[in-house]
Write a protein that binds this DNA or RNA. Structure first.
Length: 881
RNA sequence: GCGAGAGUGGCGGAAUUGGUAGACGCGCUGGUUUUAGGUACCAGUAUCUUAGGAUGUGAGAGUUCGAGUCUCUCCUUUCGCACCA
């Protein structure tokens, strides 16, 4: 780019006017294509990605916060000399577009396109450093054709399969509902009670990668511990044994899974899930049992209550044979046993499991203690009639296994069962295979054709993409229009040519968001999904997004990354090296009670607050004079009417103010409380900096060039102190930006420096040179946060070019040198004085100086000094009594 | 119930390695400028106080010359999982 273009020779305005600055600076970036990047093997790359938004129509504060964090990191890394990629796109498939289509009679594609255009314009007003040439939208065929292609690769490899799974069926609208469309067990439009139906759906074998996903999540050291733990729990690996109980009077067996084989000898009954085949068979001749099973099935609705729900059971009348003792153990149906985990049946050891104990007490089943503690005192305190003993210990009442420790018994019993062919060691996962079929319209079509003769057949490569028809109309039922479009689904079989039927289901939208980060590296490629550019940019160095994606999105993206690696498309094992999960944006909530006793929520901007002389709020009123109540801070939402529109604030204060406030109010990973007065404070800060630079520029006798080093010879103390403050601030800010990611303290440190600078009233060319250096450094340090005003001030300070292309300032050792430091004097750990000492003074000298302090003398007058501790450069603690 | 985190002025938050608690900002109080409001600027703002100090980081104990920070017990709260055998 030409430097000329960025030079504005007009005189500096005495006041800060955000509107003209921001539009001019943004235009300059756009004209210069400042954020377009290409692969440069000579430069270190940095790929910074923020989670792409769903194009709902308007930017909200959560977006502003998320994208500002990513942008600050990107711009900082750019100043560190990295080749920075920061792309943006749209997670464009999804249910809201269908809802809008029904409501407004607009096709989802049109609605989505309009929203993307609006939101793109809004993002641009925020001045984010995105490479817009890489923009992608997941609803476009040039994007989703590659996931269709990839799905078929997985199909070939046997990593996808079809099986029956339950869906929510609305019997009135005759359509499948997404979980979000089921409200209190009823269809959201029809109000009909939703039924569960079993239909064939496609699954991805994520369980085949369970071990690798678990092992590798433990290696992601730059991810928040919380997210790693959540993923570990989600995968939920547990080691144990699967064993067979023979059924009495038949040849059949019942398989159960346990992680505590050491307690096997204490198993006094078995419990199976209500859906278990054995339960259903036993119910055929037992109407009471049948009724119990039905009752359990209907309890499904509220999952939250499930955990606290009363444990209930019903005897099947069938008994099993204990695989070791040969004793008869009754089989029960229990409402707490899950059909979906393990084999849907458990062995119950009431002596050593709380839930089994409760159940046994309730139904008067045997409780046999088989574990005791190695510690005699503990062992004597165990009373199995009072409660279960769940610790591991030493086996008793266990025949040949008695005396073994739990640890030894696990292997011993497992080996015994294995040899008897009655069991084997096994690993169970909580993780289920990923069902990717959705019976919705607005999604990527699944590229499969069903033929009566050939079965499920892949769409031929040359027929990809299977394009989703966009010229459609929704009827009142809300069911997918392509399910009623013969021109879409009537196709010949790709194998035999016979008339066949195209799949009309679409992919779960998590499918699109699982690989978009990789596609940004080559979004223009119409020959392949990814190319060699992917290996230049991947993995993503910094990923920024909401904690709500801690499990599903991040797990699926990690899974896809491994799938793509195994397909030879990329090299990296993991997609995201560092992860930053930003906190929620909260705002005050206010309401009054209406006549019906309901809550009417009042927008925070319409509320007047009265305070007492300490600033504590004493009264809240709305414009009609109604006294209001508050429900505290909660996440900005429509339902509580406490949202704040970023567009209005950009208009009023400018993007830089919004950026400064959202970075300053809280550390990025914590929730942030919105405050309108806080925004004004951020704006005041920028205006103050502007005015100070204005006064400096207009009164300066110093050279406005930056050749000021010669001016720093023989500086006075005051001058030296200011320079030291500049460079201690720089060191702190650099640390905050690189290591800590605490942008709030980085901004605070700059505020502190600016406050010092405003008190620095020295005159003369040396003072001006010191000031010039200080302002220049401040502008560089703040430019990632407030890039527009920083650019303008950069030029007004007499510099050339783009501030964002400058190197991050280097520390100056000379400026940091100090001859004297202040040390604290404590007596018995309490602060009693301060003393200035030479930096190189030894401990004896320091101690002597401290003893001379008047206040210290007073305090130790009638005491004996026992000990003196000198912590170099910090404090002296005198221990006396 | 299990797991992880948090608790500091009127509020958001700072204190990074055990070493000046309350940086920075908001709010509030007083003042200057202004016809006035707003803006801007200046000063003050943890609590008690006999004005020497004393107390103070959810509560209680402990380790230490010294604890917001480390250990233990308890309380409150946020988030996640939720009968996972």
């Amino acid at each position: 780019m030409s430097d000329k273009q960025s030079q504005d020779q007009s005189p500096m305005q005495d006041h800060y006017s955000h509107a003209s600055i921001e539009s001019q600076v943004q235009k300059m970036w756009e004209d210069n294509k400042s954020f377009e990047v290409t692969e440069d093997p000579d430069k270190e790359k940095f790929y910074c990605l923020s989670m792409f938004p769903y194009p709902s129509g308007k930017l909200h504060m959560g977006h502003v916060r998320n994208y500002t964090i990513g942008d600050v990191i990107s711009r900082f890394q750019r100043m560190q000399g990295k080749n920075v990629l920061q792309p943006m796109g749209w997670d464009a498939f999804g249910l809201p577009a269908e809802n809008a289509a029904i409501k407004n009679k607009v096709p989802p594609a049109t609605w989505t396109d309009t929203n993307i255009a609006d939101m793109r314009a809004q993002l641009k007003t925020m001045g984010f450093a995105y490479d817009w040439s890489r923009e992608l939208a997941t609803c476009k065929p040039d994007y989703y054709r590659w996931e269709q292609w990839f799905f078929l690769k997985l199909f070939e490899k046997g990593l996808v399969y079809r099986k029956k799974a339950t869906v929510n069926w609305d019997p009135v609208d005759q359509t499948v509902l997404a979980n979000e469309q089921v409200v209190d067990g009823r269809g959201w439009r029809s109000g009909a009670i939703v039924e569960q139906r079993e239909i064939d759906q496609w699954f991805l074998k994520i369980t085949a990668y369970a071990d690798e996903l678990l092992d590798d999540v433990r290696k992601l050291e730059d991810w928040p511990q919380q997210v790693r733990t959540m993923q570990e729990n989600w995968i939920g690996r547990s080691e144990g044994i699967e064993l067979e109980f023979g059924l009495e009077h038949t040849e059949e067996t019942l398989s159960v899974f346990t992680t505590r084989p050491d307690t096997l000898m204490g198993a006094t009954y078995l419990a199976v899930a209500p859906q278990h085949p054995l339960a259903e068979r036993a119910a055929v001749e037992n109407p009471d049992l049948q009724a119990f099973i039905e009752e359990c099935k209907n309890m499904k609705a509220t999952e939250a209550e499930m955990a606290t729900m009363e444990k209930k059971g019903f005897a099947t009348g069938v008994s099993a044979i204990h695989p070791i003792s040969g004793e008869s153990v009754p089989i029960w149906v229990a409402n707490f046993v899950l059909m979906s985990y393990g084999s849907g049946a458990v062995m119950a050891v009431p002596a050593h499991d709380e839930r089994d104990w409760d159940f046994a007490k309730k139904y008067k089943l045997n409780i046999n203690q088989v574990i005791t503690s190695a510690n005699e005192t503990v062992a004597n305190s165990i009373n199995i009639e009072e409660g279960a003993y769940i610790e591991k210990g030493v086996l008793i009442n266990s025949g040949e296994f008695s005396g073994l420790t739990s640890q030894e018994a696990v292997d011993g019993i497992a080996n015994f069962l294995q040899e008897a062919k009655k069991g084997r060691k096994t690993i169970n996962y909580r993780l289920r295979d990923w069902g990717v079929s959705r019976q919705r319209y607005w999604g990527c079509p699944i590229p499969i054709i069903y033929c009566d003769d050939c079965g499920a057949v892949a769409v031929a490569d040359e027929d990809l993409p299977v394009e989703l028809p966009t010229d459609i109309e929704f009827d009142e039922s809300g069911s997918s229009p392509i399910k009623k479009m013969p021109e879409f689904y009537e196709v010949p079989c790709p194998k035999c040519g016979k008339a066949a039927t195209r799949e009309t289901d679409t992919f779960d939208t998590f499918f699109e968001s699982s690989w978009y980060y990789a596609r940004y590296t080559g979004p223009d490629n119409d020959k392949s999904m990814l190319d060699e550019r992917a290996d230049y940019w991947l993995p993503v160095d910094q990923y920024v997004g909401g904690i709500e994606h801690a499990v599903l999105h991040l797990l699926y993206a990690r899974f896809f990354n491994k799938l793509m690696r195994d397909e030879g498309l990329i090299e990296a094992d993991e997609p995201f090296t560092k992860l930053l999960t930003q906190g929620m944006v909260l705002a005050d909530t206010f309401y009054y009670e209406n006549e019906a006793g309901g809550q009417e929520w009042v927008a925070p901007k319409d509320v007047t607050l009265d305070t007492n002389e300490k600033g504590k709020v004493t009264k809240m009123t709305d414009p009609q004079g109604r006294a209001l109540k508050t429900d505290g801070m909660s996440k900005m939402s429509k339902s509580k009417n406490n949202g704040v529109d970023p567009a209005e604030l950009i208009q009023k204060y400018g993007a830089d103010t919004l950026r400064v406030f959202s970075m300053f109010a809280a550390p990025p990973d914590q929730s942030m409380e919105w405050s309108n007065t806080g925004v004004e404070g951020a704006n005041r800060f920028i205006k103050r900096l502007w005015r100070q630079v204005y006064e400096h520029v207009n009164s300066s006798t110093a050279p406005t060039t930056n050749k000021i080093d010669s001016a720093f010879e023989d500086l006075s103390n005051l001058h030296q102190e200011l320079r030291r403050k500049v460079y201690t601030t720089l060191e702190k800010v650099t640390d905050d930006m690189t290591r800590r990611f605490t942008f709030n303290t980085a901004i605070a440190a700059n505020m502190e420096l600016i406050n010092e600078l405003s008190k620095f009233n020295e005159k003369g060319s040396q003072a001006d040179a010191v000031r010039q250096e200080a302002f220049k450094t401040i502008v560089l340090m703040l430019s990632p946060v407030m890039p527009h005003v920083a650019q303008e001030l950069w030029v007004k300070l007499g510099n050339e070019g783009l501030v964002m292309d400058q190197d991050w300032p280097e520390s100056d050792e000379d400026a940091l040198v100090q001859s004297n430091i202040q040390m604290m004097i404590q007596i018995n750990g309490k602060l009693r004085g301060k003393v200035d000492v030479a930096v190189d003074a030894d401990d004896k000298k320091v101690e002597a100086l401290a003893m001379e302090n008047e206040n210290v003398k007073q305090f130790i007058e009638d005491k004996t000094v026992r000990k003196v501790i000198v912590v170099k450069g910090r404090l002296i603690n005198i221990v006396a009594n």
